[in-house]
């Protein structure tokens, strides 16, 4: 089965996503997924299910705070796990579209 990605490496079809696809994308980004990564993947996927769009940094931090507490709901914590631009990277690995409002 061929899985299609767009030019920036985001999944074309959300249905194609599963854990091994996530691991594959993460590997390409140089990230080894740990339980700490997975719980964030779960938060962003839940956000998408509820609100039908990928969150930018600010709402992502808020969603993480609500789900996992204020220790983890910090930009620094997200940056450590998903270096560079956490909202984009996390959406990519979670099989979601690129966040629109990520400036």
């Amino acid at each position: 089965m061929d899985i299609e990605f767009d030019d920036e490496g985001y999944l074309r079809s959300l249905q194609d996503w599963n854990q091994s696809v996530a691991e594959q994308i993460a590997q390409q980004e140089g990230i080894e997924l740990t339980p700490a990564h997975w719980e964030l993947i779960e938060v962003i996927r839940e956000f998408y299910q509820l609100f039908e769009h990928s969150p930018a940094m600010r709402p992502l931090v808020k969603a993480v705070t609500l789900k996992l507490g204020s220790d983890k709901g910090k930009s620094i914590y997200l940056m450590k796990l998903f270096p560079g631009s956490p909202a984009k990277l996390l959406a990519k690995i979670a099989g979601l579209p690129k966040p629109d409002n990520c400036l």
């Binding site: 956000f47 509820l50 609100f51 039908e52 769009h53 969150p55 709402p59 808020k62 969603a63």
Partner: peptide, 15 residues
């Protein structure tokens, strides 16, 4: 179309 209601429900997440 994308559900406007779903996007608007997220407004509190954007403060």
């Amino acid at each position: 179309q994308k559900k406007i209601e779903a996007m608007l429900s997220a407004l509190p997440m954007y403060d």
